[in-house]
Design a protein around this nucleic acid. Sequence first.
RNA 1: GCGCCCGUAGCUCAAUUGGAUAGAGUGACUGACUACGAAUCAGCAGGUUGGCCGUUCGAAUCGGCCCGGGCGCGCCA
Length: 559
Amino acid sequence: MVFKVFEKNLRTLIAGCVKEVTPNIAREDALEIGLEAPKDKSHGDIATNAALKLSGRAKKAPMEYAALLAERINQRLTDSRLKTEIDRAEAKRPGFINFWFSERRLFETLEDIAKKKVRYGSLDIGNKKKVNIEFVSANPTGPLTIAHGRQAAFGDALANILKFAGYGVTREYYLNDEGNQIDLLGRSIRARYLELCGLDSEFPDGGYKGAYIAEMAKAAKAKYGERFVRRESPEFFATFGCNWMVNDIKEDLRNFNVTFDVWYSQKRLNKSGKIKNALKFLSRKKLLYEKGGATWFKSSKFGDDKDRVVVKSTGEYTYLAPDVAYHMYKFKRGFEILIDSWGPDHHGYIGRIKAAVKAFGRKKAVLETLIVQLSTLYKDGKAVQISTRAGEFITLRDLVKDVGRDVARFFFLTRKRDSHLDFDLALAKKHSMDNPVYYIQYAHARICSMLKYSREKKKGPVKASLHRRHLKGQDETDIMKLLGRFPLVIELCARSLEVFPLISYLEETASAFHSYYDKYRIITDDASLTEGRLFLCLAIRTVLANGLRLLGVASPKSM
RNA sequence: GCGCCCGUAGCUCAAUUGGAUAGAGUGACUGACUACGAAUCAGCAGGUUGGCCGUUCGAAUCGGCCCGGGCGCGCCA
């Protein structure tokens, strides 16, 4: 990356100067210094804490050492290849050395954006490493709720970002299509089905009570009549219900602009013998033992609190068994990095699954378990209680119908994944015009609108070009620096596996545009001035569009 | 009891992962449409970062102990 090379050169330059000024400090140590973009504009465009870090070993006061270093850096800068990128260095209390970008470098950012367009901001830090990101993975026993909505919005956006950062990303949904919950689903539907046929039925203990169960029963009756009345047919209803729900979930996700590359069925995993094989593997490594009729996995040997049961005394697998197999085969499928995005109810589960992955003994295996917190829906100022089994929840479908896909997706991403999200429905609807997503989209639409206006006025294609003399003002310079930060924001998101930094960045960029637009008239009779300012605005539009695309939110030309 | 997350402006949240004077949105207040979209902009106000020690050039961030809140701790999934 351009920036990476720049950063490396800068480090080398600083390290060289450190060595010259203080020969007792090794080059390698001097390379370990920090580089960062200061918050305060008056502190330059990039800063290093080198003097602060090394002043102790230089046996000088931090500020004094910083001044000494800055002086040397300025001398060396003239014959460095960085001289076209950096104007000057300056020491500032308590001992930072600040650098100012050259004009030329800033204009290069604009040219870069114009050239790369939809690719601007993309990186190669992923080295095409294969990443598997598993998210949502809701049990097909009920419709997707708003909690799943947040999972979906987050996972999908993160996957977009990782791909943009150069990783080879596969989105995966683990389909829990067998086991107790699916059986219960089948029995719940069957009970409703029998009721429809005018027969007595006992609703299963803890069964699913939502209206969708009755709906499925009705559909089953419409399609198959009463032929399943006599036979004990839980399997039929389990399969019927599961297929129905999977289709339902897929449709909801499609409407939410989320698609998965792989739907991994637990039933298939089981049938293929992979669970058995995984257990055999652990057994061979002497990591399994019998106790009380059950089979235990020595997860405590790999950092878990205690050992875990993988096969119950009844002979059935616990949830952990297929999951161990599943993760093992994800690695076998060639993924180097696995990301599991889970709800907070899986918190206690992290230890055992990480233990399992360690037990595989793959050195390069990386498992990241991300907990995406719940969203509480507030309706009329009160939290809506959620219980899938009791049939009390707000579905993702209803939410999207209510506030729209873009607002819903964006809203879910406005908090860090760890933070609890309060989703006030009434407020989201009532103030939908004040929603930050509109703020960003509006900036994009405004730029599109300007282009249209200019096209109509000129009765011809719009020219936008880099007229440097018109883009030298402080406001333009600030915007260019902001746009130049976009790739770094992507990098930050990719490294921290967060989406949130991108949201704040886009808000900041939209704000910068709105401000600029209000302060200056873009389209005037001065042709070159107009072209220059349009060039800048187009660059802003590109960045906004790229950012919104990664979030899975539309960038409308008009609103 | 053990483990994890959290506590920042009236409210909801940030803070480039240890940086410089802790920032946005929202609410309140003041102002800006006969020119490119007012879904906007400009301004004003708001703080002992729950508390106390410690680590160091430097702490909202790291460590320890309290206070307060949330979640998880099954041969459930």
